[in-house]
Design a protein around this nucleic acid. Structure first.
Lengths: 139, 139
DNA sequence: AGTAAGTTTTGCAAGTAAGTAAATCTTTGG
DNA sequence: CCAAAGATTTACTTACTTGCAAAACTTACT
């Protein structure tokens, strides 16, 4: 159970963007400041663009910029942009009716953990991180 | 962010053991009943033995048995037996003083999530799962 | 001593995440 | 139109997880 590099890089990049006042950022800038491999970052940014978190434009004066205010971008949004819908485990037999289903008390444990985690991620915005204000409201 | 197969298999196996009344279980039995690849399971069981959750003995009448009551084995114990200490992310530069440390508001987000997750795992025992009683006390 | 039932170890193959390098497309400005 | 600055895409390593197979070790029993 690990947060992937991709997700960490994505959050790191968006937080960087949130902290700076500029409106357009290049891959080179972000990758240098945040120590992220440039071509790898390019792929990550692409996903963020495709999912509508960022817009991009090539050419001089080009780069990436935010599509919405940073308080409206949650960690859950970033997670899903990068990794797709969360699925903490793959059920034993994919796309097949699971023989073990009836006796599977297992499943609900991971479901609970997943719900917990999603709630946690949903409650934190990029702005919260940029402002270093990440006390999670445990309800 | 995924629960590894290894961890899922480990929990599944221990839960199976907790549910049955026998005192000794063979790899073959567990792998057949729980649909877990036999040789892969062997490696997992080995870890559980090394970490003191199970004892094992070869030969006829041999197999694996519990080292302590199932209510005293938490998901956290199993996690740590299989994966080692939880580390949701590897810091940017391993074993090196991180240049970004001062401005790294990132880190504490993952620390919070990790703490959350560990608390969750620590509150659930194998017995809880076997008895299908996994309502987590969100405090 | 020998054999069967078990665990334990070793080696290999496929799939995926992470990283590296280079080529290609797109816009801006002369 | 041309060139430079940028994003985008493609291809190739590297390491790790998962899975598979076989060999090696250990105990109980006859």
């Amino acid at each position: 159970m690990q947060v992937s590099k991709s997700l960490d890089y994505a959050v790191r990049s968006l937080t960087y963007i949130a902290k700076e006042k500029a409106s357009v950022f290049t891959i080179r800038d972000i990758s240098q400041k945040q120590h992220i491999p440039q071509n790898y970052l390019a792929k990550i940014m692409r996903k963020l663009v495709q999912k509508g978190l960022l817009s991009s434009s090539p050419g001089p004066e080009g780069g990436y910029s935010l599509r919405k205010p940073t308080e409206d971008i949650s960690l859950k949004d970033i997670y899903e942009a990068i990794e797709g819908d969360m699925q903490l485990i793959d059920c034993m037999e994919k796309n097949v009716v699971c023989e073990l289903f009836d006796s599977c008390t297992q499943r609900s444990v991971w479901d609970h953990l997943q719900l917990h985690t999603l709630t946690f991620l949903n409650d934190i915005s990029v702005k919260d991180i940029a402002d270093n204000r990440i006390t999670h409201k445990t309800k």
